[in-house]
């Protein structure tokens, strides 16, 4: 399953490391990363493949939320279909 992870919050050392370590532990492959600073907020978008991940998406989402809380950022993951549905005909 392809999904998009977004990480939004105040920039600090270790955000990418923290998120990518968790994803590696859960066997989630990162296919693409982009990051930018939007209105003083660190904003990172990752396209990931969860085919090898043993967790269901809602369980992975929970782990990412917890990781976000420890890093002081908001992390969400969504199935890519929601974006395809809303932005592609």
């Amino acid at each position: 399953m392809k999904a998009f992870i977004t990480v939004i919050g105040k920039d600090r050392v270790g955000i990418i490391a923290g998120v990518s370590t968790l994803l590696a532990e859960q066997k989630v492959n990162i296919e693409d990363i982009s990051q930018t600073i939007l209105q003083d907020n660190f904003t990172m978008i990752m396209r990931v493949d969860t085919a090898e991940c043993a967790l269901a998406l809602d369980e992975l989402a929970k782990k990412l939320t917890e990781k976000g809380e420890s890093l002081g950022v908001v992390i969400t993951i969504r199935h890519e279909d929601i974006f395809n549905a809303m932005h592609r005909i």
Binding site: F4, T6, I8, D32, S34, T36, L38, T43, I45, R47, T76, R78, E80, I82, F83, N84, M86, H87, R88
Partner: peptide, 12 residues
């Protein structure tokens, strides 16, 4: 491929 602006629009 979905663009960053589209992803951020949905999230917003």
């Amino acid at each position: 491929m979905i663009g960053s602006n589209e992803i951020l629009e949905t999230i917003g």
